[in-house]
Amino acid sequence: MSDLQVTDERRRLGRFVPELFVLVLVAAVLLRPRVAGWFDSATLQTWSTVFVSITLQALPFLVLGVVVSGAVTAFVPSSLIARLLPDRPAVAVPSASLAGAVFPGCECGSVPIAGRLTSLGAAPAAALAFMLAAPAINPVVMAATAVAFPGQPEMVLARFLASFAVAVVVGLLWSRFGRGSWLRLPRRAVPEGANRWDVFAGTARHDFLHAGGWLVVGAAAAAALQVFIPRSLVTTVATNEWLAVLVLAGLAVLLALCSEADAFVAASLSQFSLTARLVFLVVGPAVDIKLIALQAGTFGRGFALRFAPLTFVVAVSSALVVGWWVL
């Protein structure tokens, strides 16, 4: 009995949450001149700028991602998905990786799509391969890399090969050794039998709020690391090749750059060898702080704890092999 009352009470209060939220926002606008002085610290301001820009920059890609995931849920029959991404990893994983090559997204958009594909019956290995390939080897990223490294087309080729290999290898490894219990699949956001547009909007809304919340976690962490670890510290290790590879791989994880912008940063890290910079470009779209947060949110913490180290190791190795071969 008392349980019910408590829930009732909570519900009554809960009804005013949207109004309270709006009030808080209005109060923030009105109070801004009074509290502006509290936030003068250069560290806090720099953190805020980087935090806001990572969030804003990821927003359109996230929206594109959830619109696609909503559309897939609402308009594509599960039977078709299961047929297109069958549970035969030798076929499904490479084709899903290739499918990623035509999807012009940032890494944050492909996570909710992979989540929905899996919960709609696609083989997890194939969905994960798509998730790794889409942000790394799509045409926009390839073009950005070509612009950032003018006169070095082998860099574009190396990036494509290395990232494609990461998607395929991780997908195959997952299909061989992965366990279903490691994945916590996203639940249906809208009950079965609803009108298709409601399913579309409901799924997109749910996936956006979910992934968006985790994106904020990742952006806040990445911004903090950018502010607290000065880039000048990183460049001092450039002379030792092995150390340089490890440091740039770590930097790719910590900076959490958009895959469409990381080539320009890599180009400016010219103290480092091309192979070390290739490692930076291959690791970044596959595993970074923001992505780990998003994946933990979408597939569960148990998944992220296994998937992130696996991807990291495969990405570094793949980039090194391709780097020695092509560059």
Partner: peptide, 23 residues
């Protein structure tokens, strides 16, 4: 589950923008 608690974090960038308005 339709409205995950983590979604509240989306309010953080809004508040940062409104209060700090980072330059």
């Amino acid at each position: 589950h339709g409205g995950p608690g983590v979604a509240w974090l989306l309010a953080v960038p809004l508040l940062v923008l409104l209060l700090i308005a980072p330059p």
